[in-house]
């Protein structure tokens, strides 16, 4: 008996020594997930596991982001996870985030989980002031965020003070006015009461629609220099590339829509945007950081691919997935009406 036990123990420690796994933590917008990955896994294996765990099928919007030095990078699907240049202390931390954004949020997002993750990500970016949000829009959006959290407005339940623990507005907005917390709550509650009759899901979608209408998400900004050495901002989004003055992130000086670009090349650490119109100037730029240049290139390719894909018929698999999700949504709505 003892020898059997000893041999079993020996076997277990041997197994441990030969462990072919490493641990990762995947932080989503509403949960932290722990996974044990095989050493040979590629980015795709981990990404697919996360999507399966979340029940998320609209995978094309998302990516796994990690911090590297003073910037961020996205896990490559066809490269081994451990071959990426990142700190290897376990658990390795990744953030599961929207990498690409829809052109039209209402038409394109199908699953509730996709919508929820987008909602949480955009809301966080607005509250943390990564995105500029005018004061009046902050109040309107806060009323929909509250609606998404608390359900439909009910004056018997939602009494003064019910928002006292909530983070409602960007600090910058609060500092612009001489208003107490109670006054802000009252403003937001007035709006909340005005859009009664919606479900939480509908409130989330309304939030995203308003934010999209006001162009408050979807652009990835990068500090760049043009060939004359002028500091500029580059914005990459679902519709194309935009060049901004660093002091005005909202109105581009020049835009290059994807369908008007003949080609974007990257060589000798320099980008060149060649417009379709051969008479138009080629726009050359770069970022001083190699990692940022790589990130720009990845986002250009990914956004352009999605732009082209939106203009083609969905694959059978995607058609089926969208149909299932729509049926599920319709079934839920029917159930709600019946109740």
């Amino acid at each position: 008996m003892a020898s059997v036990l000893a041999s079993k123990m020996g076997l277990n420690s041997l197994r441990r020594k030969q462990a072919k796994t490493f641990s990762v933590t995947v932080v989503t917008m509403d949960a932290d997930l722990e996974f044990s990955c095989e050493l040979k896994w590629k980015g795709k294996d981990l990404f697919e596991l996360v999507c399966r765990t979340l029940g998320l099928r609209e995978t094309w919007f998302f990516g796994l982001r990690y911090d590297v030095k003073d910037t961020v990078a996205w896990l490559k699907m066809d490269k081994k996870v451990l071959d990426h240049d990142m700190p290897k202390e376990e658990p390795i931390v990744f953030h599961f985030l929207a990498k690409f954004y829809p052109e039209n949020v209402e038409d394109e997002l199908v699953q509730d989980i996709t919508q929820h993750l987008f909602f949480l990500q955009v809301k966080t970016s607005i509250l943390e002031e990564e995105i500029y949000c005018p004061p009046e829009a902050s109040v309107l959006l806060a009323s929909y965020a509250i609606h998404a959290k608390y359900g439909d407005y009910d004056p018997n339940v939602h009494k003064p003070g019910f928002l006292s623990q909530e983070e409602l507005l960007p600090k910058r907005v609060i500092n612009l006015y001489q208003m107490t917390a109670e006054m802000w709550e009252e403003r937001i509650t007035v709006c909340y009461a005005e859009h009664r009759g919606r479900t939480r899901d509908e409130a989330e979608m309304e939030y995203l629609k308003i934010a999209q209408d006001l162009e408050m998400y979807g652009v990835n900004y990068f500090s760049i220099r043009n060939k004359k050495g002028t500091s500029l901002l580059l914005g990459v989004d679902a519709l194309g590339l935009h060049i901004y003055d660093p002091s005005n992130k909202l109105t581009p000086k020049i835009s290059f829509p994807w369908n008007e670009i003949r080609n974007i090349s990257y060589s000798d650490k320099e980008f060149a945007i060649k417009p379709l119109d051969k008479r138009a100037d080629v726009f050359k730029f770069n970022s001083s950081k190699l990692r940022v240049n790589k990130l720009i290139l990845q986002l250009c390719i990914g956004n352009h691919d999605l732009f082209m894909r939106r203009r083609r018929v969905d694959s059978l698999e995607v058609q089926q997935m969208k149909m299932q999700a729509r049926e599920e949504k319709a079934r839920k709505q029917m159930e709600r009406r019946r109740l």
């Binding site: 004061p135 009046e136 006015y177 001489q178 308003i210 209408d213 006001l214 909202l250």
Partner: peptide, 27 residues
């Protein structure tokens, strides 16, 4: 930038008006 939905547009204008009297002098 105005939202496509006129209802939102009106709501934003109303909120802007209601905030105005409380704006800090510097704004």
């Amino acid at each position: 930038n105005n939202p496509r939905n006129p209802h939102h547009h009106r709501a934003l204008q109303e909120i802007r008006r209601s905030l105005m009297p409380f704006a800090n002098e510097t704004t």
